[in-house]
Amino acid sequence: MKRVAIAVAAVLLLGAGVAAAATVAPPKGPVSISLPGDAGMAFKPGPGVGAAQASCLTCHSSAYVSTQPVLSRAQWTAEVVKMRTAYGAPITDAQVPPIVDYLTAQYGKP
């Protein structure tokens, strides 16, 4: 806190919000963490869940779907198309309808 107080005083003196600082050395050496993967989250069961798992979970958790507002079929279709065209998801034309059916049934409105 003392160092912060010194920095604050320097900021007030210079009046610019930027200050030459007390020295803080850049970090050295490694840091390792272990991320929890999907932390136990999974798609709801239902017809087409396998297609959704295969196409969606490669890149992101099921929370990307389950935390969305209750989307319409047209909105879920737009999301699936966006995943294919903007984010390069390898979803074929034939795979789109079963995925959209699943998302609309489990996470959407008709």
Binding site: G29, P30, I33, L35, H60
Partner: peptide
């Protein structure tokens, strides 16, 4: 994006 390094060596 999900490909995030979990081991980073500052040195």
């Amino acid at each position: 994006l999900s490909n995030i390094p979990q081991h980073v060596d500052a040195s």
